[in-house]
Simulated scan of single mutants.
Amino acid sequence: MVASIAEGPPRWSVVIPYFNEAAFIATPIGSAIAQQGTSLRLILVDNRSDDGSEACARQLLAGHPELEVVYLREETPGQNHALARGFAAVETPFVAFWDADTAYPPHYLASAERLLTGGPFVGAQAIDVYCDPLSPAGWLRRWRMRLTQRVLSRQGHTGSFGQCFRSDALRLAGGPLSLAWPFVLYDHELIHRMLKQGPLTGATDLWCQPSPRRSANAHVRWTLFERVLYHATPFALKDWFFYRFLAGRFERRRMVQANLRKRDW
């Protein structure tokens, strides 16, 4: 029995949505198998892949019957639709959203659980690192981002690949899918809704390593002006920022979630 499995029901649900990720999905699956210090249930959501991604996942997990795995399929294109499908199957106290091309250290869930247990926090935001996390550059990145999280504590600082939540709070927030936000950057909109339920936290040891290919996503980025205004807008005005100001601009630029299925790699 591997260290990721503990006595009793799982504490975590790890939801991994994927669309044509046969070449990458072994990375987060390996991370799930290697988790230590807590227990998990793996929920894999196929978002209409046609490259054999699910078959790859099943083959990788065939040798790990001790790990509870749920295979789902979401026909509506869009990562947040797949996340919502996976979240509907969550029965655990905590849920983590992972991406299908991202690596997570063995202590990831245990670190997040310590942050979310016995305190006021409803969620934790992991730090994305694109080099060796233990190198000087990685250390600087982790501490700089943690300082940013503390200074700008009422904002989002990570994508869905690094979001960990208390399941009850996420249900109260309406779940991953918001019908009021059909645009890209839904992960920031989700953080905005979660902050209405309570504070978020993070830690320098709560980090992950997304694929470097994520730098090629110009079709889903907001402008520098929009980003600066996001940081400058007080939390009390964030509803206006998202649902009036930014939604109108994204609508004119057709920055809908279907853009997330376009790939520059």
Rank of each mutant, 00 (worst) to 15 (best):
L147E: 10
Y130V: 08
L172A: 14
V129H: 01
R142T: 03
L134M: 15
R141A: 13
Y130Q: 07
L134R: 15
A173N: 04
W139F: 15
G159H: 01
A124Q: 00
S160L: 11
F165G: 01
S160C: 13
A124L: 00
A173S: 10
G175N: 08
G174K: 03
R154C: 07
G174D: 05
G156K: 00
P136S: 11
L152Q: 14
T158E: 03
Y130E: 07
L170R: 00
L177C: 06
G159R: 03
L140H: 14
L152H: 15
G174I: 05
A173D: 01
L147C: 11
C131Y: 04
S178I: 04
G123S: 14
A126K: 00
A124N: 02
R154L: 13
L152G: 12
R171A: 10
T158S: 07
R150H: 12
C164H: 03
S167Q: 07
V122R: 00
P176Q: 08
A169F: 03
Q125D: 09
L172V: 09
R141L: 12
Q149K: 10
G159M: 01
S160T: 10
R141C: 12
V151R: 14
C131L: 09
R154P: 01
P176G: 08
L134A: 15
D128G: 12
S167D: 05
A137K: 15
G138Y: 09
M145S: 06
P136Q: 11
P176L: 07
F165L: 07
L170K: 04
R154T: 09
S135Q: 10
Q163C: 10
R154H: 13
L147P: 04
W143E: 13
V122Y: 01
I127S: 02
P136C: 12
S178G: 07
W139R: 14
A124R: 00
D132R: 15
C131E: 11
P133D: 08
W139H: 15
